[in-house]
Design a protein around this nucleic acid. Structure first.
Length: 164
DNA sequence: AAGTATCCATTTA
DNA sequence: TAAATGGATACTT
């Protein structure tokens, strides 16, 4: 299976599609290609192209700080149940808004699971589209980012969010 | 500002 | 199946 390059104004992302949708997305400079074992051989090329197109559009929207109107199907099959909940909660964060790990934890019904939430965010295979960058620590502290704090700051800035 | 406590999920034995 | 480790934390001093 092969990662599909997705051209955006911020660079070329690389998307990995499974038969169910977008399974992995990494940043242009992300050297670590996910050794994700997925099979997209059953997916018609037309569909793959469509998904790529949707991914590209979504990325552009995200890079412009806009709400993601249309997303390609996201394949969270790799993640655990809990991670799925977390990522789903992350998706509900409005653009230009930031949320704390504790808030996310509360949102999934486990107020004290904020650390686990952080872990789940770190394990998020689809940055940007799943707004893990909008999640900050308490008191608007920066925290970290899998793709590098550089990207997190950039993404937040594009949404008009000023982080310390 | 720094240190400590706490808690869940994940990973490893 | 159980125990140990880690973490993009939170809270207290």
């Amino acid at each position: 299976m092969k990662a599909i390059p997705v051209e955006t104004s911020a660079g070329t992302f690389r998307a990995t599609f499974s038969e169910r949708g977008l399974a992995r997305l990494n940043f242009p400079c992300a050297d670590i290609s996910a050794p994700l074992t997925v099979d997209n051989s059953s997916v018609p090329e037309k569909v793959l192209v469509r998904w790529k197109k949707l991914t590209q559009a979504a990325l552009e929207d995200a890079l412009h700080g806009r709400h993601l109107a249309m997303l390609p199907p996201l394949d969270f099959q790799n993640g655990t149940d809990f991670q799925r909940d977390v990522w789903n909660a992350l998706r509900s964060i409005p653009a230009g808004c930031t949320r704390s790990y504790a808030e996310i934890a509360r949102a999934i019904g486990k107020p004290n699971a904020f650390r686990a939430v952080g872990q789940a965010c770190g394990a998020n295979p689809i940055p940007v589209l799943v707004p893990c960058h909008r999640v900050l620590a308490a008191h608007r502290k920066l925290g970290g980012f899998s793709g590098g704090l550089d990207w997190k700051k950039r993404l937040l800035a594009s949404e008009g969010v000023e982080a310390a």
